[in-house]
Simulated scan of single mutants.
Amino acid sequence: MPPASCPCGLAGSYAECCGRFHGGALTAPTAELLMRSRFSAFAVGDTGYLLKTWHPGTRPRRLVLDPGQEWTRLEILGRTGGGLLHTEGTVEFRAHYRHRGRDGFLEENSRFRRADGHWVYLDAEA
């Protein structure tokens, strides 16, 4: 069952926010919205969406999520490019989680690119 509020942290329900991207009705118009929708996909366990929005050159063959990990909150720390008129962009973020009763976070600067007119996750910068 999808959550009522969107896991990505923006105002609105999951259905009105990232759920519309997960359902395939729309694609994320910016790199940040794709990042947020991918975080939400991790939170709701939507591996199909994660693979679909991964660049074909860096996408794994399959993706298995850890059922003991719960993604709890997303903070956007910064961004470059990634807008409506860009072809590349980065989104720096901190993703909070609970794993087997312990809190933690993942901090990353993700790179995004347009492929066939749609934003996709490319990789993470060290």
Rank of each mutant, 00 (worst) to 15 (best):
G83Q: 07
Q69D: 02
G83V: 02
A31N: 01
L33V: 02
G78N: 02
S40E: 02
T27E: 12
P29T: 09
T72Y: 12
P60R: 01
R38F: 09
G83H: 10
G89C: 05
A28G: 02
H96I: 04
H55S: 08
R98V: 05
R38V: 14
L77M: 02
G24K: 08
S37D: 11
S37M: 06
Y49F: 15
A95H: 00
L51K: 04
I76F: 03
E88F: 13
G23K: 12
F93L: 15
H99W: 04
E92Y: 02
L51F: 06
T72C: 00
H86V: 07
G89K: 10
R38M: 07
A28Y: 09
G82I: 13
H96N: 01
T30C: 13
L84R: 15
L50G: 10
G78S: 08
R61H: 11
E32V: 04
H99C: 05
L50C: 10
A43W: 06
T90D: 05
F39D: 11
T47A: 13
L65E: 00
T58A: 04
L26F: 14
Y49H: 04
W54Q: 03
H99I: 07
P29R: 08
L85N: 07
S37C: 04
F42T: 07
E92R: 14
L74K: 03
Y97A: 11
R100Q: 14
S40A: 15
H55R: 11
P60T: 12
W54M: 08
R59C: 08
D46S: 14
R61A: 15
A43L: 08
L77V: 08
E75C: 02
V64Q: 06
L50R: 01
L26P: 10
Y97N: 08
A28W: 08
D66M: 06
G81S: 09
F39L: 00
A41F: 05
H55K: 04
A28V: 11
T58W: 00
T80C: 03
G82P: 02
A25E: 15
G45W: 06
P29A: 09
L26G: 02
L26D: 13
R98T: 08
G24H: 01
G57H: 01
L74Y: 06
M35Y: 01
T58F: 07
T47Q: 12
G57R: 14
R59T: 00
Y49V: 01
T47G: 03
L50N: 08
H86I: 06
H96E: 09
L65S: 04
A95D: 05
L74C: 11
R94A: 11
Y49A: 10
W71Y: 05
R38S: 06
T80I: 04
L63P: 02
G89L: 10
L33H: 07
Y49M: 03
V64E: 15
G57A: 13
R73H: 12
E88D: 12
G81I: 00
R98L: 14
K52M: 13
Y49R: 03
F39Y: 15
R36N: 01
R61K: 15
E32S: 09
A41Q: 10
M35A: 13
W54H: 15
R100N: 13
W54P: 04
H96T: 03
V64K: 08
K52L: 15
G89A: 09
G23E: 14
R61D: 14
E75Q: 09
G23S: 14
L51E: 12
L77G: 05
A41R: 09
